[in-house]
Each structure stands twice: as structure tokens, then as C-alpha cells.
Simulated scan of single mutants.
Amino acid sequence: MLRRLALTAVTSFAVLSAATPAATAVTGHLPLPLPLPVPGLQGDDATRKTQLTVTVSDSGDRTADGVYELKCLPSGGSHPVAHQACDRLAELAEPAGDGRNPFRAVPADTMCTQQFGGSATARVTGTWHGQRVDAAFDRTDGCEIARWNNLRPVLPNVR
């Protein structure tokens, strides 16, 4: 996404630079437009802010169950693998990812394999790249298992 924003900004600048001499030849000197901030390039971390509370229950692993805080940019909080979790969330936010919000629920009309992945549940609340998050996770069918696994290591490795 940052690359796309930077490319748009550079292209817009090039177009404006080419158009300005032609406009001044006809109308005289025009005031130059004020530069607009480009998110991500001006240190605007508000659009990339990630601060999540992850609550895991019934995972079968007492060390994985609990409530964890995860902060990114910089990585921190009480999450046991905060740096790796932040790297994964950043990867999911990039255009090279699948382009979908990993916290979005599985659509109701989706056909999923009927398999049980265990009784583990998780709830993730907070902010991911400036977007509000309030998502519930379980492992009740193939779609939910895949959704959980997509967020590892934000969510623990459960078998």
C-alpha cells in the first residue's frame, strides 16, 4: 500500500510539474499548490497504528491461554512473540498479501469442511493499521481453522 501511495504521489507531482509551465504561459504566475502529506512517507503512523488485545481460551496449552497486549511500530506489549506477530500483521496489510482483512468473519454462505480443530477460542480487539478490530475466532470447521492459522503467530499454534 505504501508503494502505491508513493507512486501516486510521484506521478501526481510529475503531472503538476509538467502542467505548471503551460498554465503560467497563458495566465501569468499561479500560486503553487501546497504539498499534501503522503501517509507513511511523512511519518504518519496513525494510519498504520496497531494496538490489539488478544484473549485466548481453551487452547489446551496453559502457556498460550491468557490476555495479551500487542503493540506495533515499535513491537511491544505482553504478547509472547510480539515482533513476529507485528511482522505477520504488516505482511497481511501489504498489497502482496491476499488483500483481505484477516479479522473479517467468514461469510455465512461459505462452504467449509466439517472438521473440528479443537475447543480453542480467541478474541482480538483494538486497532490494526488504523482500522477498528473486534473479531472472534474458533476452530469449529475448516474455514475457521484456516482463518485462525492465517493469523499465526498473533494467535497461538494450536493443534
Rank of each mutant, 00 (worst) to 15 (best):
R4Y: 04
R4E: 14
R4K: 05
L5M: 12
L5T: 03
A6K: 03
T8R: 13
A9Q: 09
S12Y: 05
F13S: 14
A14T: 13
S17M: 14
A18E: 07
A19C: 11
A19H: 00
P21E: 05
A22F: 14
A23V: 13
T24H: 13
A25W: 11
L30M: 12
P31W: 06
L32Q: 10
L32I: 07
P33M: 12
P33D: 07
P35A: 14
P37E: 12
Q42K: 02
G43D: 05
T47V: 10
R48Q: 11
K49F: 08
T50I: 07
Q51K: 08
Q51V: 14
Q51H: 13
L52N: 08
L52V: 08
V56E: 05
D58C: 02
D58P: 01
R62Q: 08
T63S: 14
T63E: 15
T63F: 08
V67T: 15
E69M: 04
L70R: 06
K71T: 15
L73C: 02
L73D: 15
P74M: 12
P74G: 12
G76K: 07
G76P: 07
G76F: 10
G77V: 12
P80N: 09
P80L: 04
H83Y: 11
Q84A: 15
R88Y: 02
R88A: 11
L89T: 07
A90V: 11
L92P: 05
A96C: 06
D98Q: 06
G99D: 12
G99S: 06
R104F: 01
A105N: 13
A105Q: 09
P107E: 09
A108Y: 07
C112I: 01
G117P: 08
G118Q: 04
A120I: 01
W128D: 08
A135M: 04
A135F: 05
A136F: 12
R139C: 06
T140L: 00
I145E: 13
R147D: 03
W148F: 06
N150W: 02
N150I: 00
R152Q: 15
P153Q: 09
V154R: 02
L155N: 08
L155Y: 10
L155H: 07
N157G: 02
N157A: 15
N157T: 14
